[in-house]
């Protein structure tokens, strides 16, 4: 069985907001180390990977590995019934087809109980190799959100170029184009500043639609890391106290 007590429902609410438009159904894989989710979007171009460590919960118990197949739309609706600062307890019995959620109000005796149907989801798990990326960029997550939102007004794609000069985001739309250069900030480390590590010049193009979606995770962390190597998927990573959310996005290829 699973019993996990989260100090604040906000983390789960934000996580669901970050993935619900990318993925419809997914397995939350629970084991004694915590809860993991890996799912691809329909087109298999983007992948989201979530980790919530057991140590990030106020109380956590999972006797044996348990996949909780969830419709993310339904989960979002049930989580909307929780206040951000409610204590959130999730429970599932072995082989059960129900996930129960309890929200305990912080400053009152209100206890709300919800149940959600679980489903069998047959999804392939991808084996993501450890990669030594050619470039790592760390920047304020709000800055990344602004860049991808701004450029998505102009075109469908963004070219990300990492060079000695810094990291440049370039959008070439039909009617307008734009580019934004971020230089490494020498006197300011993350979360406010930008750091760039580069072994090799990188030049890759990605669909902005997905990046705008990934940027929703800025509610979970003030810092985002972009890891890039030529001709391999981009890794966009947000770390927070209880775990992380990572996105992989296949690069666009020239014709």
């Amino acid at each position: 069985m699973l019993e996990a007590r989260l100090a604040e429902a906000a983390i789960l609410k934000r996580l669901l907001d970050s993935i619900k438009e990318l993925v419809t159904d997914a397995n939350f894989e629970c084991n004694e180390e915590g809860i993991n989710l890996q799912a691809m979007d329909n087109s298999h171009v983007a992948l989201v990977s979530v980790k919530l460590s057991a140590s990030g919960f106020k109380k956590y118990r999972c006797d044996r590995p348990l996949p909780l197949g969830v419709n993310l739309g339904s989960f979002t609706k049930v989580l909307k019934c929780a206040k951000d600062d409610d204590v959130c307890i999730i429970k599932a019995a072995d082989d059960a087809d129900i996930l129960s959620l309890t929200y305990e109000a912080r400053n009152s005796d209100r206890i709300a109980e919800y149940e959600m149907k679980l489903m069998d989801i047959d999804a392939d798990t991808l084996n993501i190799p450890d990669t030594d990326y050619d470039a790592r960029v760390s920047m304020p997550s709000a800055e990344f959100t602004r860049i991808v939102r701004d450029l998505s007004q102009l075109g469908e794609s963004v070219r990300i170029e990492v060079s000695k000069e810094g990291v440049r985001f370039i959008s070439d739309g039909e009617a307008a184009n734009g580019n934004i250069l971020l230089r490494q900030t020498d006197d300011d480390a993350p979360p406010e500043g930008v750091t760039i590590e580069m072994n090799q010049h990188v030049n890759l193009t990605f669909s902005l639609k997905y990046l705008v979606n990934f940027a929703k995770s800025s509610t979970l962390s003030n810092v985002v890391q972009l890891m890039l190597s030529n001709d391999v998927p981009l890794l966009v990573s947000y770390d927070f106290n209880q775990g992380h959310i990572r996105y992989y996005l296949a690069p666009k290829i020239g014709d």
Partner: peptide, 14 residues
């Protein structure tokens, strides 16, 4: 026009 490969091409199934 640029296009994308699927991630299956980069990451093998477990």
């Amino acid at each position: 026009v640029a296009d994308q490969h699927s991630l299956d091409r980069y990451f093998g199934a477990k």
